[in-house]
């Protein structure tokens, strides 16, 4: 149970960071933290107590193993997160070139 609570706290930290921080880079870090929390949750969903890694071998019998599917899913999600982070960092570098600041409140050429 405590690990799920930690997961929730991690998620809340990330969400707080995205909502409250004014620096573009800190917002990107916040998104990263949220993604990690979501990934952690997914891996925890596949965790079994005293389970071992789900590798089949002829000489031993596997009785209790963790669910391998969340691990595969999370691997994909990490790659997606990487692409997203890359995009956000590239855009914020360009924004810095144009606006000369990382402060989100000063990046306001769009109105309405």
């Amino acid at each position: 149970m405590s690990e799920y609570l930690l997961c929730l706290i991690l998620f809340s930290i990330g969400l707080y960071c995205v909502v409250r921080k004014r620096n573009l880079i800190k917002i990107i870090i916040g998104i990263g933290i949220m993604e990690y929390a979501a990934n952690l949750f997914f891996v925890l969903a596949g965790y079994r107590k005293t389970g071992r890694s789900p590798i089949f071998s002829a000489d031993q019998q596997v009785l209790n193993m963790v669910d391998p599917l969340p691990q595969a899913v999370v691997l994909t999600a990490i790659v997606i997160g990487l692409a997203l982070t890359l995009l956000l960092v590239a855009v914020s570098i360009k924004i810095y070139e144009k606006y000369g600041t990382f402060d989100i409140t000063k990046i306001n050429k769009l109105k309405g």
């Binding site: 998620f11 969400l15 995205v18 573009l24 917002i27 998104i31 949220m34 993604e35 979501a38 949750f41 997914f42 969903a45 969340p70 999600a77 997606i80 997203l84 995009l87 956000l88 855009v91 914020s92 360009k94 924004i95 144009k98 606006y99 990046i107 306001n108 050429k109 769009l110």
Partner: peptide, 27 residues
């Protein structure tokens, strides 16, 4: 341009948060 970068950043941040919620839902 300055405006399109700003729009893309806002769109990407909000889209990313939305995606995390969807991913949690799938979890």
């Amino acid at each position: 341009e300055a405006e399109s970068l700003e729009a893309a950043f806002k769109y990407a941040v909000m889209g990313a948060v939305a995606s995390v919620f969807i991913f949690l839902g799938i979890g």
